[in-house]
């Protein structure tokens, strides 16, 4: 009998060792959204991350998990992060919209692993930039807590913008030294606003021109010229502005000229402002407002939604 039991135990042991994963991925703790194994995050930051995530998950099913570890123990950063992402199941299963921000202290390495569902908003290049602009500068000074929180805020800003929700996260601080004069332009930060203003100007210009020169061909020619002029003017003053926005405002000027022209010459009864300009919201079109995700509510039952990463994201050694 003892022989059978010991044989069974041995078998179980052997089987276990076969099924154990390649690395020792630490278990997610009860907070789930923060696992501060290197013990570098402040209590406020942890609470903040958890509370923001609770709202985010309830509204969109997305999850942004922060993990800090002391050392990778020789493991490959990318593989480790992917395996951790999968074993935690970050993000919802259907949308795979999780983000894992992993920092290994001793290796001085950081990785942002992005679930497939969020790759459209935070592609590899952007995840690298978030790290460069928002996190690495802090990390270089050993300000781990600030760096992680700032990176978290940057990711949150992107993802909540994507879903069109407000989860009460604070705005991230840009650390990269920007050229000085850009700070003076009040609408520099929001290229959509710039585009709207440009379109407004285009609208007025178009109307006036339409009234002044009710000739179709002159109108066409000025339409062809004015967008380029506007384009170069704007490019000179706002080099940061999104190219897409520039072209859209060009298009806006053109469109509104035609409306102005049409009003004056053909007296078509069609008010110019009627053509509601919704397309200025640029490329963001994915709005999943009321999602079916019911909040898990109680504080102790947080867990992953079953997201699987395909290995997207980027890594930094600093």
């Amino acid at each position: 009998m003892r022989l059978i039991i010991s044989a069974a135990l041995l078998l179980i042991f052997v089987m276990n060792s076969l099924f154990v994963s390649a690395y020792d991925i630490p278990e997610a703790d009860s907070l789930f959204y923060v696992n501060d194994l290197a013990d570098i995050l402040s209590e406020e930051t942890e609470e903040y991350i958890v509370s923001v995530n609770d709202k985010l998950y309830a509204m969109t099913g997305a999850q942004v998990v922060i993990v800090t570890i002391q050392s990778l123990g020789g493991a490959d950063l990318e593989e480790y992060a992917t395996e951790m992402f999968r074993s935690y199941g970050i993000g919802s299963r259907e949308k795979d919209n999780g983000v894992l921000i992993l920092l290994s202290l001793d290796d001085r390495a950081c990785r942002m692993e992005i679930g497939y569902g969020l790759e459209g908003v935070i592609n590899d290049a952007k995840s690298g930039r978030i790290q460069d602009d928002y996190m690495i500068p802090y990390f270089r000074d050993g300000k781990w807590d600030e760096g992680m929180k700032n990176g978290f805020d940057a990711v949150l800003a992107e993802s909540s913008n994507e879903y069109g929700v407000d989860v009460g996260s604070s705005a991230p601080t840009v650390l990269k030294t920007l050229p000085q004069e850009k700070e003076d332009v009040p609408w520099n930060k929001d290229s959509n606003t710039v585009g709207m203003i440009a379109m407004g100007i285009g609208f007025v210009v178009g109307l006036i021109m339409g009234f002044l020169i009710p000739s179709f061909w002159i109108g066409i020619i000025s339409c062809l010229i004015s967008p380029f002029a506007g384009h170069y003017l704007m490019k000179a003053y706002m080099p940061e502005m999104d190219l897409l926005m520039l072209y859209m405002s060009d298009f806006g000027i053109l469109l509104f000229y035609f409306i102005g022209w049409a009003i004056t010459t053909k007296t078509v009864d069609k008010s110019g402002s009627d053509s509601s300009y919704d397309s200025s919201s640029s490329s963001r079109s994915y709005h999943s407002g009321s999602s079916s995700h019911s909040s898990s509510g109680s504080s102790s039952s947080r867990s992953g939604g079953g997201g699987r990463s395909g290995g997207g994201g980027s890594s930094r050694r600093f």
């Binding site: 990318e78 992917t82 290049a125 995840s127 690298g128 395909g310 290995g311 994201g313 980027s314």
Partner: peptide, 18 residues
């Protein structure tokens, strides 16, 4: 260039995972 390198590195990692 940094962006391209990030995209490439990300794709390489995705290949490894796939």
């Amino acid at each position: 260039f940094i962006q391209l390198q990030d995209e490439l590195a990300g794709t390489e990692n995705r290949i490894a995972v796939a």
